[in-house]
Each structure stands twice: as C-alpha cells, then as structure tokens.
Amino acid sequence: MKKYPLSEEKIHALLTAEPVARLASTGSDGFPYITPVHFVYMDEKIFIHGLAAGEKLANIKRDSRVGFEVERMIGLVHHAQEACDTNTAYESVIIRGHAAMIADAAAKRAVLDAFVRKYTPQHTGGSYPDAMVKMTGIIELSIQSCTGKYYPV
C-alpha cells in the first residue's frame, strides 16, 4: 500500500488542471516510446489530439496498451543541511489503459471543444473547418487502472 495515496478528488483535479502529460506506447522495436502530450479528461477517459499520423499512432494501432502519467511538482523539501536529504513535494497520477483512434467527426469536434475550453477558453464556441477535423487525430484512452500518490510539503 502506498504511504501517501492521492484521493479520487485530487486525482480528478490533477487530470483536469495539468496541461502536459506523458503517453507511453510500445515501439515496433519493443522499446517504450514516451511522448509529452496535451490532453483533456472527460467522461472518465483521457483524450489526446495531434496529427492523424505518426509513431505514437502507429504504435497504438499495433498494440493498444498504453501508459499515461501526469504530475505536479509542488516544491523541494529540505529535511537537513545535507544535499542528499532533499526530497520533492509532488502529486502524480499513473494510468494504464487501452488507446484507440476516434474516427467520427462529431465525436472529434466534441473533444476539440473540450481542448479549447481547457487551453484557449477565449475561443470557446468557434467552429472547425472540415479539413482540419479530418487531419486531426484524436486518441481516446480507456482507463483500466488509475493510481495517484503525493509526497507532502
């Protein structure tokens, strides 16, 4: 059992507020492939957007199992005068799940609306050209397990 588990409320807050996370997939060579991503958390799923082609998408098509991680560094915790006795106060969430591409244009638009609300709320209510929606890849990550932990200040 973790010494400092993050509550469900704190997990939700971290997944809602943090702007950048990391997505891990398995490369064609069997090695992990990790990339920073912008994301939104809605309907108990993670959504990631980007181009409709690339290494992470090829990896997901080959093997839908992925890892996802997000953290917030709160600060350094100095326990003593020695350099080795410093720790980091943080909150983090680790998710394992299955990823798939969304093809439906209406579903893609709904996810893009969520991205706009999170990252550029001043543009809420705008529309998306059909060509842009078509060339945008939306990954839907269905969560199989989700854990969070923290280290206190």
Rank of each mutant, 00 (worst) to 15 (best):
P129V: 01
K10H: 09
L141K: 07
V93F: 01
D29C: 13
D104K: 07
T120I: 14
A114C: 05
G97C: 06
T124I: 14
H38C: 13
E55P: 08
V37W: 05
S64Y: 08
K108P: 01
D104R: 08
P5K: 03
F47G: 06
A80W: 03
A17P: 07
I94L: 13
H38Y: 12
S28R: 15
S127E: 15
H78V: 10
S28W: 08
A106H: 02
E44F: 04
I46R: 10
R117Q: 10
D85H: 13
D29N: 15
H79N: 07
V93L: 00
Y90R: 00
V133T: 14
T35Q: 05
L112N: 00
M73E: 11
A83Y: 03
A52D: 15
E82P: 02
L15N: 08
A100S: 15
G137D: 08
D29A: 12
K61T: 11
S7V: 00
F68H: 02
P129T: 05
K45W: 01
F47V: 08
Y33K: 05
A21M: 02
F115M: 10
A52F: 09
K10A: 09
D85R: 11
I11P: 11
D104C: 09
V153T: 13
I34R: 03
G125R: 01
A52G: 14
R62F: 05
E44Y: 08
E140P: 00
L6T: 05
K3E: 02
H49C: 11
E18T: 11
L14I: 00
I95F: 02
P121A: 06
K134H: 09
Y4D: 01
G54T: 10
E91I: 07
Q81C: 06
M73V: 15
I95S: 07
K134W: 03
A53P: 10
D85Y: 04
G30E: 12
S25G: 09
D43V: 04
A114E: 09
I139E: 02
K10F: 00
R22K: 04
G30S: 11
S92R: 06
T26K: 13
D130H: 09
R62I: 04
L76Y: 13
E44C: 06
V111L: 04
T124S: 14
N59Y: 12
E82V: 03
Y119S: 01
R96E: 13
R62T: 12
N87L: 07
I95H: 03
F31R: 14
A83H: 05
V116K: 00
T26V: 15
L23T: 06
V93W: 00
A103C: 10
S92K: 01
G30M: 12
H49A: 10
V153C: 11
S7Y: 05
M132H: 12
Y150G: 05
Y90N: 03
T86N: 07
D113G: 01
K10P: 04
K2Q: 13
I138L: 07
P129K: 12
L57Q: 07
S64I: 04
M1Y: 09
K56R: 14
R62K: 15
